[in-house]
Simulated assay, not measured.
Amino acid sequence: MADMQGARHWNENNSRSFLDYGRYFVPERERQIDMIADLIPAAPGGLLVELCPGEGLLSRALLERFPDSRVLALDGSAEMLEQTRQTCRNHAARLTTGAFELSQCDWRTFSEAPQAIVSSLAIHHLDGRQKQMLFADLAAALRPGGLLVVADIVRPPSAAGLAIAARQWDEAVRSRSLAIDGDLAAFAEFNRLGWNYFRNPDGEPIDKPSSLAEQLAWLSEAGFTEVDCIWLFAGHAIFSGRKP
Rank of each mutant, 00 (worst) to 15 (best):
A2E: 10
A7N: 13
A7R: 14
R8H: 12
H9L: 12
R16G: 13
R16H: 13
L19G: 06
L19P: 02
D20I: 01
Y21F: 14
G22N: 13
R23H: 05
Y24C: 02
V26L: 14
P27H: 02
P27M: 03
P27D: 03
E28C: 11
E28I: 01
R29G: 03
E30D: 15
E30Q: 13
I36Y: 01
D38W: 04
L39T: 06
I40W: 03
L47R: 09
E50F: 00
L51P: 01
C52I: 00
P53H: 00
S59C: 10
S59P: 03
A61D: 01
E64V: 10
S69G: 15
L72K: 04
L74Q: 03
A78Q: 12
A78D: 14
M80V: 05
M80E: 05
T84S: 04
T87H: 00
R89W: 05
H91I: 01
A92F: 02
A93F: 05
R94W: 04
L95S: 03
T96L: 12
T96E: 15
E101M: 02
E101S: 12
S103E: 14
Q104E: 15
C105G: 10
D106E: 15
R108F: 05
T109I: 07
P114T: 06
Q115H: 12
Q115E: 11
A116E: 08
A116Q: 09
V118E: 02
S119I: 01
S119G: 12
S120L: 08
L121M: 14
I123W: 00
I123H: 03
H124E: 09
H125P: 04
Q130V: 00
K131S: 04
Q132K: 12
Q132D: 12
L134Y: 01
A136S: 13
A136G: 08
L138D: 03
A139L: 11
A141M: 05
A141E: 02
L142R: 02
L142Q: 04
P144Q: 10
G145T: 03
G145R: 03
V149C: 09
V150A: 02
A151Y: 11
D152W: 04
I153W: 01
I153Q: 10
V154Y: 01
P156W: 02
A160R: 11
G161E: 07
G161S: 08
A166Y: 03
W169P: 06
W169N: 09
E171W: 07
R176H: 10
S177R: 07
L178I: 13
L178W: 12
I180P: 00
D181Y: 06
D181S: 14
G182K: 04
G182L: 09
D183G: 03
L184Q: 13
L184E: 15
L184K: 05
A185Q: 14
A185G: 06
F187G: 09
F187M: 06
A188T: 12
A188R: 12
E189P: 05
N191W: 02
R192D: 13
R192M: 08
W195G: 01
N200Q: 14
P201Y: 06
E204A: 13
P205E: 10
I206G: 07
P209Y: 08
S210L: 10
S211P: 10
S211V: 08
S211K: 07
S211M: 10
E214H: 10
L216D: 07
L216Y: 07
W218S: 13
S220V: 15
A222W: 08
A222T: 11
G223M: 05
F224R: 06
D228S: 15
F233N: 10
F233M: 07
G235K: 05
H236T: 11
A237C: 10
R242C: 07
P244C: 04
